[in-house]
């Protein structure tokens, strides 16, 4: 049974149709990546899944239940948590407070400190900066904070929208290795990326989105070697 299944999803912004019937599946334990150019509708799909954008048509099943009509809070409580494009950490709140916002809906108070310690282990820089205003962090640190904050919600499925955006190559590598680690820790991941090469290298399965439609899908290794993907997203011709 898939952990997440999106069926024939449509999203409109006024007259603009951003998603024109998108269907994807995410199997438990996998990293599934969604690649596509700017404006393809990746963020719209993420927002639709998380319940912060209105959907016109379709179905979304998470853990065998429809979340199509659920509000954002229910979806988070069910274990589907997003790290949005552009991080969206809370300026004016300390790093620690930002992390605690991730645990906003959690009832199990006694495990919080443990989880916080785990986050600090995974992102030592966050512990060093725990009392600092989140807005004073660098881009890479903010990305880590946004990821740590989402992990504080103990997600079953983590949505990552362009986590490598605007980061220096060395940080991009670090972020991707952290994503792999998170998967190894048992969290399923749906990863949106423009950095198709890196995304395909760590993903199990991939979808290519173009102007609101899935145009290609398959195991990540296969897509990485396909001529279309190489030409359109990996900036080169197929070399076998």
């Amino acid at each position: 049974m898939s952990l997440l299944e999106v069926k024939d999803l449509h999203v409109h912004y006024g007259v603009i149709e951003a998603l024109k019937g998108v269907s994807i599946k995410v199997e438990p334990g996998q990293i599934v990546t969604l690649i596509g150019a700017n404006g393809a509708g990746k963020t719209s799909l993420m927002h639709a899944i998380s319940g912060i954008v209105k959907k016109t048509e379709g179905e979304i099943i998470f853990k065998d239940k429809s979340i199509f009509k659920s509000n954002a809070a229910h979806i988070v409580a069910d274990g589907l948590v997003q790290v949005p494009e552009g991080r969206h950490v809370f300026p004016g709140l300390s790093v620690y407070e930002n992390l605690m916002m991730g645990a906003y809906l959690r009832k199990d108070k006694k495990n919080l400190q443990d989880d916080l310690n785990k986050i600090y282990e995974r992102f030592p820089i966050l512990e060093k900066r725990k009392n600092q205003d989140a807005s004073t962090l660098s881009g890479g640190e903010q990305q880590m904070l946004a990821m740590g904050r989402a992990l504080m919600a103990r997600p079953t499925l983590l949505l990552l929208d362009e986590p490598s955006m605007g980061l220096a190559p060395i940080l991009v590598k670090e972020i991707f290795s952290i994503i792999s680690d998170i998967q190894k820790g048992g969290t399923t991941i749906l990863l949106v990326e423009q950095n198709a090469r890196m995304a395909l290298s760590i993903a199990d399965y991939a979808y290519v989105l173009e102007t609101g439609k899935v145009v290609l899908e398959g195991p990540a290794k296969e897509l990485a070697n396909s001529t279309e993907v190489q030409e359109a997203y990996l900036g080169g011709s197929a070399k076998k």
Partner: peptide, 10 residues
Amino acid sequence: ADENGAKLMG
């Protein structure tokens, strides 16, 4: 600070 960010935290 960030309404959408807040919504995404539930």
